[in-house]
């Protein structure tokens, strides 16, 4: 695909990783290859699920 978009994609992925949001594409790829029988979450549900997992649990502690 268009090469000039690649740095922007990489920057976006990095920003998402910094706030603990995993890649949705990787999730879809995982579901397609491992659980083709199951319906994957749509992006909205995926985002909410990950937001709750990051901030709602014990791992919420940020460093000093």
């Amino acid at each position: 695909m268009t090469n000039w978009l690649r740095p922007f994609r990489a920057a976006r992925r990095m920003m998402q990783a910094m706030v603990g949001l995993p890649s949705y594409d990787a999730y879809l790829a995982h579901m397609a290859s491992e659980h083709p029988d199951r319906e994957p979450m749509d992006y909205r549900s995926f985002f909410r699920d990950r937001q709750q997992a990051r901030y709602g649990g014990k791992d919420g502690g940020r460093c000093c």
Binding site: M14, A17, M18, Y27, L28, A29, H30, A53
Partner: peptide, 24 residues
């Protein structure tokens, strides 16, 4: 691997994740 909590991640991206978590 479950696409959610356990995801093999590119090491540069993971460096960003980890650094953002430790730097305060």
């Amino acid at each position: 691997a479950d696409g959610l909590d356990f995801v093999p991640t590119d090491r540069t991206v993971l460096f960003g994740h980890h650094f953002a978590a430790i730097a305060g």
